[in-house]
């Protein structure tokens, strides 16, 4: 697979550096402004959809770091998404924690669970990690449904989240306050992901993925790099889960089926591996919007679309939707400036 964007030879060096960094920052600021402007532009269901997409995008960002940058395959991150969501629900239901803070607690709890599962699982490689996490994905719904924890989780019935809107003087309704909270966390995670991926951590992840032995020889701590990628992905997934639960204001075992883990996997692969922000965002939009359309045509239709699109993406454009977008923009730019962009490709 060619993942040019992660090539170590490419980077923020060379003559374009002075221009490209401020330009990129300008781009991020503009994107954030668009997201903020949407608060007043969208309403009701559309705003809810936007919140959903952004919270799934946070999870996908984490999973993309794990799968794209660090090359570890997980088919079970829906479990951490569910843990985050249930933590948020229990915090609000039992301890009346303000909903804006629940993702923080969910992140801490999620990381604890991630450590418990990751500690043994990370010794596995490639397909075996995929198998173990596949088992995790299958086992999660049955655990959530169990009567054993029903007192806390509400069992099959689930829990409603009583969410208070922002104080009167801010002039926001409930949907808007939820959406703004989601945007805030999204901004935070976008920043974190970029910093991690572009820094030494990112180099360690890529080196570990491409050649663990050489990476070790060069002085990278391979185990630590893997653990960090795993913990970050778990953190992002549980925060995303908490925000999703807040947006839906309800959690039940049926909201976290086996299919959820597969959907997160789909979001990362379809959105584009190794595209730190755009890929997860497009992938999340894909998994939120596609079922809305397909489920009306036939039940389980989204499974078919996911399956077909995954195989198609893998076969044709291995960098997913983000790859297609970058392809188009660089084509347009080349037309305007009349020069071809040089690319470095791995392999």
């Amino acid at each position: 697979m060619i993942m040019e964007s992660t090539d170590m030879t490419e980077g923020r060096t060379g003559p374009h550096r002075n221009l490209s960094v401020p330009l990129a920052r300008l781009g991020y600021a503009a994107a954030l402004l668009v997201l903020l402007a949407a608060t007043s532009g969208l309403e009701g269901y559309d705003l809810f959809l936007a919140s959903s997409i952004l919270s799934y995008a946070i999870s996908a960002m984490g999973l993309n770091v794990l799968m794209g940058y660090n090359g570890q395959i997980s088919l079970g991150h829906g479990a951490f998404f569910a843990i985050g969501a249930y933590t948020a629900a229990i915090c609000i239901d039992r301890f009346a924690v303000p909903f804006t803070l629940t993702p923080v607690i969910a992140g801490i709890v999620g990381m604890g669970a991630g450590w418990l599962i990751g500690k043994p699982a990370l010794r596995l490689e490639g397909v075996y990690l995929a198998l173990a996490t596949f088992g995790l994905a299958i086992a999660t719904p049955t655990v959530l449904r169990s009567d054993l924890f029903a007192e806390w989780t509400g069992g099959v019935q689930g829990l409603f989240l009583g969410i208070e809107p922002a104080p009167e003087w801010m002039g926001l309704d409930l949907d808007q306050s939820i959406y703004l909270t989601v945007v805030a966390y999204f901004g935070l995670f976008a920043f974190l992901t970029l910093r991690l991926v572009q820094g030494l951590n990112g180099k360690a992840w890529i080196a570990t993925r491409d050649n663990p032995i050489a990476a070790r020889a060069m002085g990278f701590d391979v185990t630590r790099a893997k653990t960090r990628a795993f913990v970050f992905s778990v953190l992002a997934c549980s925060v995303g889960g908490a925000l999703q639960a807040v947006a839906v204001q309800f959690v039940a075992p049926d909201s976290f089926p086996f299919f959820l883990s597969i959907a997160l996997f789909t979001a990362v692969v379809v959105g584009g591996l190794c595209s730190p922000l755009l890929g997860p965002l497009l992938g999340a939009a894909f998994i939120v919007l596609v079922p809305n359309v397909t489920e009306e045509i036939w039940q389980g239709g989204s499974w078919a679309v996911y399956g077909g699109v995954i195989i198609g993406v893998i076969a044709i454009q291995s960098r997913g939707l983000a790859g297609i977008m970058t392809g188009i923009t660089s084509w347009v730019r080349d037309r305007i400036t009349g020069q071809t962009t040089t690319r470095y490709e791995r392999k």
Binding site: V127, A130, I262, S302, W303, A304, Y306, G307, G308, I314
Partner: peptide, 19 residues
């Protein structure tokens, strides 16, 4: 292909046959 591609193909197959 490498592991990730193979796993993705099998997941795709899984979803397609199921649906």
């Amino acid at each position: 292909a490498d592991d990730l591609v193979v796993v993705a193909v099998f997941v795709g197959l899984f979803l397609s046959i199921h649906s």
